[in-house]
Each structure stands twice: as C-alpha cells, then as structure tokens.
Simulated scan of single mutants.
Amino acid sequence: MTLQVIDPKQPFQSEYQPAINDLLKFLRGGLGENLHSVYLYGSVARKTAKPGKSNIDVIVVTKRSFSDTRTTLLNTIKWRFQQSFKHITEVSIKTVLSSEVATLESIFSWGFQLKHCSVCIYGEDLSECFGDYEPSWEIAKHWNMDVEDWLAVYRNRIARSSSAEEQIKAQKIIAKKLLRASHSLVMHRDKKWFDDPTECGKQFLRFHPEKTVDIERLNILLMDRAIPKRSVVGILDSFGDWLVKQYKKTEFRIG
C-alpha cells in the first residue's frame, strides 16, 4: 500500500495565499537564478492551518550555497511576515542544495519529505525524482530515532522557561513530536502515515490502548495554556522513556 501525497491542485486557504505570493517574491528577488525550487510543508501545505496558531513551513532549494547572505535574507523575510501577516505565528525556513536532494542517500530524508509531506510552489519539483513510498520501519526510524535527543532538549527548555509563552511553545513542540513518533512506532503495522499529531495519537491507541492516559495528557500539552512544569516533565519522563525503549526494541528486532 503506497502512501498518499498532498494534492498539489487543491488551492491554499485564502488567508495564506497572499503570504505565499509575498514569500516567493522575496525569495526570487533575493536569490535570483540561484533559486531552484520552493516547497511548503506542515498545516499550510495540507490546507488545515489555523490563523493565529499555525506557522508557515518552507523548504528552499538552491543550486549553489548562499551562506554569505542566508541570514540577512531569511531574517528580512521573517521581519516582513511579522509586519504584514499577523495571523502567521512564525516562518520556519529550511535550506538545501539541489545536489543534496536527488541522491540515493536522501531517499528517506528529503525524498520522503518532498514526496509525501510537501507541495512544490515554485520551480522544478524534485519530488518527481522519487517513486511512491510504502509504510515501513525504515521511514519510521529515520524520522524518530532521535526522539531521545528531543526529549532531553525540550525537558530542559520547559524546566528553564521564564514565561508562560515560552513554556507553551516548547511543550507544544515536544508533544507533537511524541504523538507523531508514537504512531510511527506502529506505522509498519498500521500501513498508514499521518502528520496531524492528534490523529497520530488516535491511531497509535489502536495498537496500544493501555497508553490512553498518556496520549490524553500529550493532547492537553497541545493546548494554548501552560501546564504545571512538574506535570509536563512527568509526562515526558514516563511516556517518553517508554517510547525510546520501544524504538530500540523494534530496531533490534527488525534491524
């Protein structure tokens, strides 16, 4: 069973199309002929973004490095969005060379990202270099074997956060990571791929109903309110530790 791709013909939400047009204008003006292609991923690409809550996530592919002007260009774009598009909470931009994308080594990284999680909005669509993907342990482990590192980083960020806003941002990021990683753990059995974190948790419970309370607590962390730090750390330590061990067990078993 092959995984679904995001329909590139489905129009973007009207609240986001002006921002997408502005983004492309700045990238084309700043990079010129060095710009190879541009992709959206995340909720804006899936047309499920919520104004005032959703980021716009972008992948910029260039023909050559632009490390000398990268920081200035990206900061200018982010400043522009803060001024003109108040309903977009943040602009996240990843950059990569075209020569690094279309390679055998990138099958489970850039290949999967562009094929099943992104929409090309400008230039030559490199996702066409890759065939259809099937749910597999190779995909799951590539995207989630780093969950132990994420837990350490965000446990520390939450513990050290000095404001409710800072804590909420951190707890939402790690909750999304854990919910997605939970479903990826069973993806090779479920034969499906989900990006929405709530749906990931729901599907995971079909295989691990004993973890219902943990998934409910992670969903609470997605809300726009600060949870007592001790409770958040407790969730990360209990379910996070279990998840890390399960990934190691599965990798040992499947290889």
Rank of each mutant, 00 (worst) to 15 (best):
Val58Glu: 01
Ile59Ala: 03
Val60Leu: 05
Val60Arg: 03
Val61Leu: 07
Val61Asn: 04
Val61His: 06
Val61Met: 02
Thr62Tyr: 03
Thr62Phe: 02
Lys63Cys: 02
Lys63Trp: 03
Lys63Val: 03
Arg64Cys: 05
Ser65Tyr: 08
Ser65Glu: 13
Phe66Asp: 01
Phe66Tyr: 14
Ser67Ile: 13
Ser67Val: 11
Ser67Leu: 13
Ser67Lys: 13
Asp68Gln: 13
Thr69Tyr: 15
Arg70Pro: 05
Thr72Tyr: 08
Thr72Gly: 06
Thr72Leu: 07
Leu73Phe: 05
Leu74Thr: 06
Leu74Ser: 02
Leu74Pro: 02
Asn75Phe: 05
Thr76Phe: 09
Thr76Gln: 14
Ile77Asn: 11
Ile77Lys: 11
Ile77Tyr: 05
Lys78Phe: 03
Lys78Gln: 15
Trp79Ser: 14
Trp79Cys: 01
Arg80His: 15
Arg80Gln: 14
Arg80Asp: 09
Phe81Pro: 07
Gln82Trp: 10
Gln82Met: 09
Gln82Ile: 08
Ser84Phe: 08
Ser84Thr: 10
Phe85Leu: 12
Lys86Tyr: 09
Lys86Met: 06
His87Trp: 12
Ile88Val: 10
Thr89Ala: 15
Thr89Met: 13
Glu90Leu: 10
Val91Trp: 08
Val91Lys: 10
Ser92Ala: 15
Ser92Phe: 07
Ile93Thr: 14
Ile93Gly: 08
Ile93Tyr: 06
Lys94Tyr: 07
Lys94Thr: 09
Lys94Trp: 04
Lys94Val: 07
Thr95Cys: 00
Thr95Ala: 00
Val96Tyr: 04
Val96Glu: 09
Val96Cys: 11
Val96Ala: 12
Leu97Asn: 07
Leu97Gln: 13
Ser98Asp: 15
Ser98Pro: 00
Ser99Tyr: 06
Ser99Leu: 08
Glu100His: 09
Val101Arg: 02
Val101Gly: 01
Val101Gln: 01
Ala102Arg: 10
Ala102Trp: 02
Ala102Gly: 11
Ala102Leu: 10
Thr103Asn: 11
Thr103Glu: 09
Thr103Met: 08
Leu104Gly: 04
Leu104Val: 06
Ser106Asp: 14
Ser106Thr: 12
Ser106Ile: 09
Ser106Trp: 10
Ile107Asp: 01
Phe108Val: 08
Phe108Tyr: 14
Ser109Asn: 14
Ser109Leu: 12
Ser109Ile: 11
Ser109Cys: 09
Ser109Trp: 08
Trp110Cys: 00
Trp110Leu: 02
Gly111Gln: 14
Gly111Lys: 12
Gly111Glu: 10
Phe112Asn: 00
Phe112Leu: 04
Phe112Pro: 01
Phe112Gln: 02
Phe112Asp: 00
Gln113Val: 02
Gln113Arg: 09
Leu114Arg: 00
Leu114Ser: 00
Leu114Pro: 00
Leu114Tyr: 00
Leu114Ala: 01
Lys115Glu: 04
Lys115Tyr: 05
Lys115Trp: 01
Lys115Met: 04
Lys115Gln: 10
His116Ile: 07
His116Gln: 12
His116Met: 04
His116Trp: 03
Val119His: 03
Cys120Met: 12
Cys120His: 13
Ile121Glu: 06
Tyr122Leu: 07
Tyr122His: 11
Gly123Pro: 13
Gly123Asp: 11
Glu124Gly: 01
Glu124Phe: 02
Glu124Trp: 01
Glu124Asp: 12
